[in-house]
Amino acid sequence: MSKEVLLGEPFATRTGDRIPARETRSVVRPSRIKQYEPLVIGTFSVVFALTAWQLVANARIYSVLFLPGPWDVAQAFVKLFQTDDIWLDIATSGTEMGIGYGMAIAVGLLIGLLMGWYTRFQYALDPFVNFFYSTPRIVLIPLFILWFGIEMTPKIAVIFLGALFPIIINTMAGVRNTEAALLRVARSFGASDALIFRRVVLPGSVPFILTGFRLGIGHALTGVVVAELIAAKHGVGQLIAIAGQTFQTPKMLAGVLLIAGTGMLLTTLLQRIENRFQSWRPQIK
């Protein structure tokens, strides 16, 4: 950094020239292939793994029941979407996920911000947050079934509780991690607490909050599947459970694929949003 200052600044000061941007001074321009490197290597490694899997499956040391190949799973996947039931399953699980996760975002954000901003509020809620975060919320499913039956409500409750705590904890951390120097500047200019919160604390917490959302997705999906495994009428988790119990291993793995795909899609989506909010951060690569 200091070198750049030495070179750039005095000249610019004297002549009023625009200081050349850093990129133009880099000696080696990264090649185009380098840009797609992550994608290319990633694709190759997946293709390699699938091929290896297919070869082992083709050897038929074990039956399809024990070790279906990727081709079997793909066929089962296509067949799955030729039935009408799958749409009901997806709609059921999707609704549970949407409501549970949506509520977790709303409530988690609110509680996390309050706990971060008001120390006393944090003292009051810390025991509960710690208790629930360190307990697998899944163990509460029997209780939820007692309370809410075997329709969607107990699943929503499990999803909600699953996603809630990572969101609370990360949001709180975001508020707590506000840089002291920024707070000092804001106070020095006489900023009100409301303005400090809106203009300094909240924007600074965005990366943490989005990380919480992203972690929450994983917990929420776990919640969907496990809750439906235990007792459900419809849903993708239920489909996986029944396929497993009736020895339709390819179909079961097709269901797993559906869940995993959803998780990856949502996580990537959130990653995109995160990147948008971070456009001010210079690329490390």
Partner: peptide, 25 residues
Amino acid sequence: MVFQQPGLLPWRTVLGNVIFGVEAQ
């Protein structure tokens, strides 16, 4: 105050940071 550490909001542009003082006031 002009601070020892610049204390700029990293998500704001130069323009956004320069107006932060009057905005806070």
